[in-house]
Design a protein around this nucleic acid. Structure first.
Length: 472
RNA sequence: GGCCCCAUCGUCUAGUGGUUAGGACGCCGGCCUCUCACGUCGGUAACCCGGGUUCGAAUCCCGGUGGGGUCGCCA
């Protein structure tokens, strides 16, 4: 009756960056925990002292924070738990489930090559299984004794029932010659010690699971449930990796993506809910669960992330949040230095969110409206600042100058009034005005442009534009 | 190569024996419109192949093909 509390974990190894595939695994685990009211554990698998650095660990924390994946327990560092693993390994040696092996890496490599050449399974041949006497000058490793016969069954929560013959498995190393534990051992010890109820990870760990199952059995431990999600592939259909580029989570932050958009896109890579595609975070927590996770590998669609998910989430985000983000982006790129409460920021967000797929595009769009100097686009000038525009611009300037206020409504009323008076379409006035104001024929709506520029600048530029038109 | 997994438009996917095979991104065209966008309407495009089972298969079974993963003192 009493179900144990759901406890899942994300257990990355510090490689120096957070990969999209890892990020999806973290997201799935986090959503699973939040959906089921369980606990989310962060564990750093830094047993390989060669590769692990403090900086690499910080990158993981930073990526997790940016994505909004808060953990309830940890972070636990495996590098701080070596004594525990050593003790556990000795337990297995004592019970006969594991043994010391004095074969050297060189010997093993040689045998592997030979086996491959003879088209045999290159697995460890088990020659130290019954050896008791040490080899002088060789520090032994501790190996796990895997059954030679029979088969191992895994009831995977995503992949379904998977069966592997035990003869495919070899006696894996638990403890290296230098006493450091290996992944396949620490993962079992920790998932047990930490009370993990479901191991939700990438399918690249599927074949490891069978070896790990035997370790659980040797300890007499009840294994957790397992769920292996199929991998994210690159456009070439190979496992997504560094060489595909654009694979680091924080790179997306720097390129102007919203974390909830990346989360949305990543979740949708393998999980779906009917025809629904855009999910705010609370909605994901409400809906996400294992039965709707598919088991076919998926190619990550970078274009759709930008065109759909990020664009949609930019439309959904609160104005204040985007204003803050836009302010940071402008400052970071050296485009403009605005105070966080500058009223122009909100105006810019209103005018630009529907025409920006990323914050970078939004900054691109904002930049001309904030520049002190007009950057003239020759084609736009040629097309819209012809001599007959001079009089129109002057009339508009006069009208605006006489207007009682300079709000967006008042400005629009002036434009409309002038157009009506002359029986002209609004475009006949707005386009020359746009070019006079910004130097370009493309921009947010003219009322937003004027509101951002402000009365004085608008009048000055309109009149300067008129002179340019008259001269041109 | 052994073992394991997978297979619906180019891509992400809906679909759980009977549908004109749906949605989304992309692409093409119309409408809207002060530009660009947004929005909207329409179009383009898929059930890998071959056998079964069945009155009937995208859906179930088998085989093939193709793709992926994995075979470390990496994780």
């Amino acid at each position: 009756m009493t179900q144990p509390k759901v406890r899942v974990r994300f257990a990355p190894s510090p490689t120096g960056y957070m990969h999209l595939g890892n990020a999806r695994t973290a997201i799935y685990n986090w959503l699973y925990a939040r959906h089921h009211g369980g606990s989310f554990v962060l564990r750093i698998e830094d047993t390989d002292r060669e590769r692990s650095t403090q900086g690499a660990v910080e990158v993981i924390y930073e990526a997790m924070r940016w994505l909004g994946l808060d953990w309830d327990e940890g972070p636990f560092l495996q590098s701080e738990r070596f004594e525990l693993y050593r003790r556990r390994a000795e337990e297995l040696v004592a019970s006969g489930a594991a043994y010391r092996c004095w074969c050297t890496p060189e010997e093993l490599e040689q045998r592997r090559q030979q086996a491959l050449a003879e088209k045999r399974n290159p697995k460890y041949d088990g020659r130290c299984r019954d050896r008791k006497e040490p080899r002088p000058g060789v520090e032994p490793v501790i190996r796990f004794r895997t059954p030679d016969t029979g088969e191992t069954v895994l009831e995977d929560r995503i992949q379904g029932r998977v069966v592997t013959p035990n003869e495919e498995l070899d006696d894996l190393v638990l403890l290296r010659a230098d006493g450091a534990p290996t992944y396949n051992f620490t993962v079992v010890v920790d998932d047990h010690e930490m009370g993990v109820t479901l191991v939700l990870r990438g399918a690249d760990h599927l074949s490891n699971t069978f070896r790990q199952l035997h370790i659980y059995r040797a300890f007499g431990w009840e294994p957790p449930a397992f769920a292996h999600q199929s991998l994210i592939l690159g456009p070439d259909r190979a496992k997504l990796s560094k060489r595909h580029g654009a694979v680091s989570v924080l790179q997306y932050r720097d390129e102007g993506y919203l974390p909830e958009a990346l989360v949305n896109a990543l979740v949708r890579c393998g999980w779906s809910h009917g025809d629904e595609e855009v999910f705010p975070l609370p909605r994901l927590i409400e809906l996400f669960d294992l039965p709707a996770v598919g088991n076919a590998p998926a190619i990550f669609d970078f274009e759709k992330l930008r065109n759909k998910y990020n664009a949609e989430h930019i439309k959904l985000a609160p104005r204040e949040r985007l204003a803050g983000l836009l302010c940071e982006t402008l400052a970071r790129r050296g485009d403009a230095n605005l105070q966080a409460d500058d009223p122009r920021l909100g105006l810019l967000v209103d005018g630009l969110r529907e025409r920006s797929r990323t914050l970078l595009e939004m900054a691109d769009g904002a930049k001309p409206l904030l520049a002190e100097e007009v950057a003239w686009d020759a084609a736009a000038v040629r097309k819209h600042l012809k001599s007959d525009a001079a009089e129109v611009l002057r009339a508009l300037a006069d009208r605006l100058e006489a207007a009682p206020s300079f709000g967006r409504e008042a400005v629009l009323a002036a434009l409309d009034g002038l157009a009506a008076e002359r029986g002209a379409k609004l475009g006949k006035i707005a386009q020359p005005a746009r070019v006079a104001l910004l130097g370009t024929a493309v921009s947010p709506p003219i009322d937003v442009v004027m509101a951002v520029l402000g009365r004085d600048r608008v009048l000055a530029r309109l009149r300067a534009g008129a002179e340019r038109a008259a001269a041109g």
